[in-house]
Simulated scan of single mutants.
Amino acid sequence: MQRRAQRDQQDQRAKRLHRVLVCAAAVPVMLVAAGCSSDSGSGDSTDKAANAAASASASPSPTVEAAAYGKLPEPCKALSKKTLKDLVPESKSGKEGKSDDISTRGSCSWNSLDNNGVKGSQFRWLNVSMLRFESDASRGSGDKLAQQYYEKQVQDVQAAEGAKGVKSEPVPDTGDQATAVRYDLKKKEGTFKQQTIVARVENVVVTLDYNGAGLAGDKSPSSDDLAKDAKKAAKEAVAAVSEANGAGGGKASGDPSKPASKSPSKEPSKEASKGASKDSSASPSKTPAKKS
């Protein structure tokens, strides 16, 4: 009886030890399973991030059409000698405006005073300014930037301070688009007849200012005659832009199938743009210097 009791006690202790060992073995199995589950979630998140980065890097970077024209003509040589003789007959030479980059901005002006003694005198002032825009991926193509500047330039001319009887009209066969604005400007020296042609050819904007006045008792010039001369000169200035860039330079060359000029250039700075606007809107009523 005593031996049986001892064996029963030993069997119970063995069973309890077995249960403890079984439970102990089960714990690491659960931990391993939990660890695998956690790793799996982290891996999915990492894969998604990697796929997103790869997709972003595979997206093509934005591109913009190259500008047609890469340079400007010499502004004081943009008009023929005959045209200058007709518009500013008493002018000896043009005065070139200052520019920090002649490939993006240029201007030239001429003064003419025909003194007729006691009969008075005829004054003429002519100015040509050009501004070229380069294509930029963040801002758009050179054509688009020139288009925006062209529209603003026309609006600024139409709103000139002191202008009387403002009239505007399109100018055909002058670049891609052109607008003529005319008005009178009365000053103490006399009434000045102002003519401004704003034209865009590809990525270049040309602004031509021409005005005349009869001084010291001489009669005022005809606005129609001045407008006719201004349009002729503007057409020459626009053609000079195409010629400066070679026969293959842009649509204005007459053959849109030819490649655009690839001449390297810089985007005109904000200061240059402001300066060009100031040149084109210069006061036509500047008192002419009298002949000695």
Rank of each mutant, 00 (worst) to 15 (best):
Q6I: 11
Q10G: 09
L17W: 12
V22K: 10
P28F: 11
A33R: 05
G35M: 14
D39H: 03
S42M: 14
G43N: 14
G43E: 15
D44K: 10
A58D: 09
P60I: 08
S61M: 06
P62Q: 14
Y69M: 15
P73F: 03
P73E: 03
E74H: 07
K77I: 01
K77W: 02
A78M: 04
K81M: 09
T83Y: 10
D86E: 05
D86R: 03
V88H: 06
P89V: 05
T104E: 11
R105F: 13
G106W: 05
W110K: 07
S112I: 05
D114Y: 03
N115L: 03
N116I: 00
V118W: 02
K119H: 13
R124N: 09
N127C: 10
V128T: 10
S129Q: 05
R132T: 14
F133L: 10
D136I: 10
A178Y: 04
T179Q: 09
K187G: 14
Q194T: 05
A199D: 01
E202C: 07
E202H: 10
N203A: 08
V204K: 05
V206E: 02
V206R: 00
T207N: 13
T207E: 05
L208G: 03
A213V: 13
K219R: 02
A233C: 07
A237R: 07
V238L: 06
V238T: 08
A239Q: 08
S242F: 06
A247S: 11
K251Y: 07
A252G: 13
P256V: 10
P256T: 12
S263E: 15
S263A: 11
P264C: 07
K266W: 04
E267K: 12
P268C: 04
K270M: 06
A276G: 08
K278W: 05
D279V: 02
S280F: 11
S280P: 07
K286A: 09
T287R: 13
K290M: 09
